[in-house]
Each structure stands twice: as C-alpha cells, then as structure tokens.
Simulated scan of single mutants.
Amino acid sequence: MRNDDVIQSIRHMLDLNDHEIAHILKLRGYKPHRGEVAHIFKNQHLPDEDKGEDCSHVLMGHFLDGLIYYKRGKSKKHPPRPIKTPITNNIVLKKLRVAFKLREKEIHDILERGGFSISKHEMSALFRRKGHDNYRECGDQILRYFLKGLTERVRN
C-alpha cells in the first residue's frame, strides 16, 4: 500500500490537520520541508497511477514512530530505535498495534469489523519476524481492511 495512502487514512481516522501531521513528524525528530506535508494530501482523490511519487519510507517511518509518541508519550526506558526502511505493510500493522495499544483479540475484531475474516493463526503470522517459518506478508487488502476497521472503532 502506498505510504501516503496510509498517512491519509490515519489523518482521517484521528481527524488531524497538516499542522498536527507535522507535529507528529517532529516528535520523532523529522523536520518536514515547507509543503512536504501538504504534498502528501495533494492528489489523494486521484487513482494510484495518477498520484505521482509516493512519500519516502524515511518520512513514513518517522510518522509511524511519531504516532506512537503522539498516542502513548515518549518512554525514557526505551530510546528511539533507528528507522528501518523500506516500510512494509507488516511494519505498519506492528506500529499501529503499538500506537493504539491493541491486543490480539482487538486486532481480530478490528479486521472483522473492517469486513475481513482471518483466523487467529493467520493473523499472528502477520506479526512474526521476517524469515520466521510462519511469517506471512501482509497484503494491501488486509491493511486496507484493518485501517477501515480501526477508523470505525476510533471514530465511533
């Protein structure tokens, strides 16, 4: 899934404006250039092939870590980890799980609410480390259903 689509979905979910998106990025130490945040939302209603260049994986990594700080606060026990790129759908799921303090049952319910049925074993495979025997790559469809279900949960 495109990084800008994920950020747009989270923006809608939490009802954030450009200033708040920039604040989330700054929480993790990223200083967005003038117009960089606005560029993420510039072509949001166009089809994927007409949107142009996606935002960088570095920006996305800083945004997801900043979202954790925004929702949970900074921890003095855990210093910030370096940003690993590229940002995959599995990483997005993991970061959102941490930011929203979600447990396995809640994640399963969110996927069901979003309209996607998945077994608990398949779901746990999405959170495994790459290279693990039971690791499963998260497809765009699963992430879209998860974001849809999480949006319904947060906004209701």
Rank of each mutant, 00 (worst) to 15 (best):
R128T: 00
V98Q: 15
Y145F: 15
G52L: 11
N3G: 12
K76Y: 08
P79A: 10
L64K: 07
Y135G: 07
R144P: 00
K94D: 11
K130Q: 13
K26F: 03
E36V: 01
C55M: 12
P32Y: 02
F127A: 08
F146I: 05
H19M: 10
I83E: 03
R155G: 04
L67H: 08
L93I: 08
L96I: 03
T151V: 04
K120C: 05
K94T: 07
F41G: 02
I68V: 15
F63T: 06
K105R: 14
E104H: 10
A99L: 14
I110R: 02
H121A: 15
R129C: 03
Y70K: 08
L147V: 07
H132K: 09
G131N: 08
H12D: 14
P47Y: 01
K148W: 00
V37W: 09
F127H: 08
K31T: 15
A38M: 09
L143A: 04
P82Q: 10
T85P: 00
R11F: 02
E122R: 13
N90M: 06
I7R: 02
R97K: 15
G61E: 11
G61L: 10
R129L: 14
H39W: 01
Y145K: 12
K71H: 06
V37D: 00
V37C: 07
L27D: 00
Y69G: 01
Y135A: 03
L67Y: 08
H62V: 07
F116W: 14
S9N: 11
H57C: 04
H132G: 03
L59T: 08
I83C: 01
G52P: 03
S119R: 04
M1V: 13
P32G: 04
I24C: 11
Y30S: 06
E122V: 05
D15I: 12
E36G: 08
R155L: 03
K74H: 10
V58W: 05
K94F: 08
G149E: 05
G73C: 11
D5M: 14
R34T: 09
E106I: 07
F127P: 09
P86C: 11
T85A: 02
G131I: 08
R11W: 01
R28L: 04
E106F: 07
H108C: 03
R34D: 06
K105E: 14
G29R: 04
H57D: 13
D54G: 06
D109R: 11
G66Q: 05
H132N: 15
I40V: 14
K95E: 09
H57R: 01
I110G: 06
H57V: 05
I40R: 02
L111T: 02
N134R: 14
C55A: 09
G61C: 09
P79N: 09
R72L: 13
K51Y: 02
L147D: 03
D65S: 09
E137C: 02
P82G: 07
K101M: 12
L96F: 01
L126N: 09
R34G: 01
K31S: 14
V154D: 00
P82A: 09
L25P: 01
I142K: 12
P86G: 03
L102N: 04
Y69S: 09
K120E: 11
D54R: 02
Q141E: 13
P47K: 06
F100D: 05
V6E: 02
D48W: 05
V6I: 15
T85N: 04
T85H: 04
D65M: 11
K77D: 15
G149D: 06
K51Q: 12
F127V: 09
